[in-house]
Design a binder for these strands. Structure first.
Lengths: 251, 251
DNA sequence: CGCATGTTTGACGATACTCAATGTGTGTGG
DNA sequence: CCACACACATTGAGTATCGTCAAACATGCG
């Protein structure tokens, strides 16, 4: 079996088709016209399905491509000097990964697949060329990076100021919103990451996360069964989260 | 006295001159040729000196410009639902602020001046136009955003995994490096932010920061006198910080 | 079916926070 | 120029939240 750590090589790369992709309103093609999307298509290749645990890229690996998720989910993480990892984000269909590698020429973090996942491989050199010709593409890339900065800073606030309870409530609410935007239920979904990964991401011990799930369930806020979660009282969860309502997007 | 919350308006804006600016190797003009820098100059205006406490922009304010620091220092912070603030970064000469406002059309955080500071006001719409014509400028903007993402993610790691001691050591080391790059001493410098701001940034209580300064001093690592700091044992401080040596830039 | 991995629950303890008082600097006005 | 006020900083004592350790329990895969 061939090495699937460099997606798109394990089998001959397939060309992607943004035009027919249901994610085009969330992903890079936003606000491109059909002609421009076709040009984007020519540089993008779709990976064969990656399976849980496959690396999209490793920390320190030379930066070459950014990746758009077509289906599945991915985590990014940095590794510290003493070997333990810090998860910096979870990514879902339509989202872009790898942009933080642009500056230094190598990925400053690693990306690993959480479940069976397919991605679009977008060679950065070619994307950059295209960005020079298509102003809307350029803007969309920048907007994506801008959003990433904003989201990371929101996480700084969470890690610095919020209690364990608020962190988990915030986490669930943000997931809920992201699923909603993608057309899924905002109250019933599957957590593709493990408790350990949730804990790591939220800066908590796994035991704390486990206890909180139990407490939220006893309080009637949620119903959990393994990775399946059902949010029973989104309103109450929102109050627990300490989130600022003004930052919500208009429906 | 006129409102200086919108710098560049309090007095007639002066044109900036990147060509003669000593920061051009750190700032936006990196890798632009002289002709291109001249074009950049035409859209940039230099602010009159801002004084401690002045706002560069407020959270939620419509996004219009990004700012480059010429002299002084600035903090950015987000405000939570219940009113307390989280500092998301400190910025020094040659660094760019405000890029996170691109996506949503309003600044998701606020920026406040820590000491007497002058900045360059760069209207984003015009910068964006210029980015369409100058590929190197486009790349530099993207690299800047990429670096911001990387730095924020480093902070996530710090807040999530490091002890109070490691956080402060890391903070001092990173400052040291940034001063070195700017041609200042890497062992003696002035902290333009208060203890409170350091504590806030590092996700600690002010008392903890104060105790750590004392402990570091007793341990012979540093010498503090108010805002003046002298790093006596950079090596040891580095060991305390738990930072990964591989991430250091080549000298 | 059994091992491995992941999750839950409990008891205990440490790190860092809160509260409170004292100490130090800085700017203002007499 | 000094005294006062105010913000900022330091130091101490007590405590709470969350992490660590440990064991039982569930889940899933070969």
């Amino acid at each position: 079996m061939d090495d699937s750590s460099t997606p798109g090589r394990s089998r001959p790369a397939q060309q992607a088709h943004c035009n027919s992709c249901s994610l085009s309103t969330l992903c890079l093609p936003v606000s491109l016209d059909l002609t421009d999307i076709d040009r984007l298509d020519t540089i993008i290749s779709k990976s064969s399905p990656l399976k849980k645990g496959d690396q999209l890229f490793d920390q320190g690996q030379p930066f070459g491509s950014i990746f758009a998720i077509r289906a599945g989910s991915v985590k990014t993480y940095s590794v510290t000097a003493d070997g333990d990892e810090q998860i910096t984000g979870f990514y879902f269909p339509g989202e872009l990964i790898g942009l933080s590698g642009m500056d230094s020429g190598q990925y400053p973090n690693a990306a690993q697949v959480l479940e069976t996942t397919t991605v679009c491989d977008i060679p950065f050199a070619r994307l950059d060329d295209l960005a020079g010709e298509l102003p809307e593409l350029r803007r969309q890339i920048m907007r994506t990076m801008s959003r990433e900065i904003r989201d990371d800073q929101q996480m700084l606030l969470l890690l610095s100021k919020k209690t364990a309870e608020q962190r988990l409530a915030t986490f669930l609410i943000r997931l809920s919103e992201r699923f909603r935007i993608r057309g899924y239920s905002r109250t019933r979904f599957r957590l593709s990451m493990s408790r350990n990964e949730i804990a790591n991401y939220l800066g908590l011990a796994i035991e704390t996360v486990s206890r909180l799930f139990t407490r939220f369930q006893k309080g009637g806020l949620i119903q959990v069964e393994g990775k399946e979660i059902d949010i029973l009282d989104l309103q109450q969860l929102y109050l627990q989260s300490g989130e600022c309502p003004s930052l919500r997007q208009a429906p």
